[in-house]
Design a protein around this nucleic acid. Structure first.
Lengths: 149, 149
DNA sequence: TTGATTATGATAATGAATCGCAAAATTATA
DNA sequence: TATAATTTTGCGATTCATTATCATAATCAA
């Protein structure tokens, strides 16, 4: 059994919930998908492969993943929440290309340390943070330059 | 005439729009409000002082403020957009207290510089960024400690 | 297997934000 | 300052993502 599956089952048993084929199927597809997937995308992906799962169940299951610490919800400003596997994944922030919607993950210890410093200076205790850099990636930038010629 | 009003009127005249009493009133109340106000809060504030303005007009006007460079829209994760005066205001990021919803602004040149460095390393051109630190402020932290006694 | 409990799918409901429209307001022009 | 072209307004309807409701189905401890 995968460690992600074990984590979910542990959460389920600790909260008097039940292991269902839908939950198992959503987990399987979720783990096999691009990071930063939306509920709708996951729903389509499952329906397209013959599943008769409902959209509400997708949302309920993704929320369950978040409650169990397996995933986190992100808002990148396009109006749809995205869900990302965080269990056993090192913390990181995001670069978001506004041309092709590509999401690049990055880590920077120096920035993290400075955030703590800012928090301390303001007597603030940080529980979580969000750092997103919006712009244009190298591929889109090159494409734009080519078009401009 | 205030510089903010001048900016808005400049934008209006450059785009064949019209100066209306509603737009002037929304600007007046907006400038006189807490930073990071929601459309609904601005609507309530105006209705409570006798205005018969519609909510749609509030939204349209706040969008106009954003287009003119007077304001920017922010999402702090509670599902409602907040609007913040940015004209003639130095760039800053936010600390958000999840207990009392207080928003503290801060500036940190070192973090900004490191963001640029990250972007460069990824051949990414930054147009904007979002850095939000979520947690609990000193006042709420003290209150919580007192209750725990 | 049963029985208590939880989960599911379909659909309705929600809430923030936008749209369409007829009426009203603005503004350039005469 | 009247006119006419254009934009804006408030209202209500609409959209879209997400959640709630509810009857039926599935799970699982005993």
């Amino acid at each position: 059994m995968k460690k992600e599956e074990a984590l979910l089952k542990d959460h389920i048993s600790k909260h008097n919930l039940k292991v269902t084929k839908e939950r198992s199927a959503v987990l399987r597809v979720f783990l096999d998908s691009d990071r930063h997937i939306t509920a709708e995308e996951l729903y389509r992906k499952m329906r397209d492969t013959g599943s008769s799962i409902g959209l509400a169940t997708i949302y309920r299951t993704l929320n369950l993943f978040c409650e169990s610490g397996l995933a986190e919800q992100r808002q990148f400003g396009d109006g749809q929440a995205r869900y990302e596997l965080v269990y056993n994944v090192k913390h990181h922030d995001h670069l978001i290309c506004q041309a092709c919607n590509r999401i690049i993950e990055f880590q920077n210890e120096e920035i993290e340390a400075l955030q703590e410093k800012v928090a301390k200076k303001n007597n603030f205790k940080i529980f979580s943070h969000k750092l997103e850099l919006y712009g244009i990636c190298s591929a889109c930038s090159a494409e734009k330059n080519a078009l401009d010629q």
